[in-house]
Design a protein around this nucleic acid. Structure first.
Lengths: 206, 206
DNA sequence: GGACTTTAATAACGGTCATTATGAAAAAGG
DNA sequence: CCTTTTTCATAATGACCGTTATTAAAGTCC
């Protein structure tokens, strides 16, 4: 019983996601959030809890609906394709929407005021988990002979994450998709060759 | 004539630099700054102007005294050494001080509230200039035969910057120096070989 | 239809933000 | 010594922060 909710919770969550994406956790104020959602302040509180809880819900939605290229990438047959797909997915995500470029997950890792610490920690953990998934995938690739014996899965995973983060920073600074694709190509140029994908290299050295 | 300044301007600037480095432009409050500097609020204002002006002075000091590895790197004989030195310099800078990891210049590029926009723009410009210097250096390297004809200096510069940014993010997330050095090594593994430094490649392809 | 419950909207809360008015203290010139 | 100039410290400013009473409206159940 009781009154029905008049606003669309999903739409409000998407609006909050856009605001957090554009301004980061600290940069987004409740005034921004309520204006974007078209909903008064107490409605947001009753529906999602406080700012941190709202951000966590937004973050879950982000990983589920936007930054969802990693699970797909992990299932590709070769480690090189995994890396290439992850890079391309990140480029698409960070340059597709002109009004909120970059990566929602990365913005918060760097913002530094004290009350944002729990959020920062949550983002770091998500990052760690993604890197662990990549590492495990590359370990499998090594076991399957898809990566050479000299390859170090942990280093490859960390390196790939570094490039992904760097591209996110550059996307936030306004870099074009083409520029980032050149960066990704360069990153893949050093990829250790497996026994099966030598022909996949985009630009075989002359 | 008039009263003498009682606090050390240089020390206050260094203290402000540490605070901005640790918390970013927005995360650092005047309460933090005055406490770190051991100076009352109006003294900071009279000496440096408002928060934005103080940050710009701090940023100039940062590039002059901390992130000063780029000029040295640019003067090394080969493009590969330039890249290697820049990577190593960034690793040192972002991991040397345990209480303010990461890169002061990168923290601000991502923080997003509206009043930080001019600061963000200044940081982006500094980043663009650094990238331009690298590109010009790599163009010279190409002309000198230090990079192959197929190499693209702009892509190499952007790629190198991406790795530097990514490592700064990872340093802020707590990565160790050893981990970042492995990332740098992997990044260098993709570096195009010049006519003179083929023997320098750490892991020649079998 | 009236008791009850949930949501909506207005407005206020204390706290912190960057910034500054105010006046006392200190140093220099005449 | 007294005036002038600069810096110092205290404290206040208005604006905005995230959060929440409070009251009115809307809907459900008996």
């Amino acid at each position: 019983m009781g009154r029905h909710r008049e606003f669309d919770v999903e739409k409000a969550l998407d609006a909050a996601l856009c605001v957090f994406w554009r301004k980061g956790y600290e940069g987004a104020s409740y005034a921004d959030l309520t204006e974007a959602a078209g909903v008064e302040r107490p409605a947001l509180y009753s529906a999602f809890g406080n700012k941190e809880a709202l951000f966590r819900k937004v973050l879950a939605r982000y990983y589920e609906r936007y930054a969802d290229y990693l699970p797909d990438a992990l299932q590709l047959p070769t480690a090189r394709e995994v890396a290439a797909h992850a890079l391309q997915g990140a480029i698409d995500l960070t340059t597709r929407y002109p009004d909120h470029t970059g990566c929602l997950g990365i913005q918060g890792v760097l913002a530094g005021s004290d009350e944002a610490e729990p959020v920062r920690q949550a983002l770091i953990e998500a990052r760690v988990e993604a890197e662990a998934q990549l590492r495990e995938r590359f370990e499998r690739a090594k076991a399957e002979g898809d990566l050479p014996e000299t390859a170090r899965p942990d280093t490859l995973a960390t390196f790939l994450m570094a490039v992904l983060h760097g591209m996110a920073v550059q996307a936030k600074a306004g870099f074009s998709r083409d520029t980032l694709e050149a960066v990704a190509e360069q990153a893949l140029a050093t990829w250790p060759a497996g026994k099966g994908d030598g022909a996949l290299r985009p630009k075989p050295q002359p």
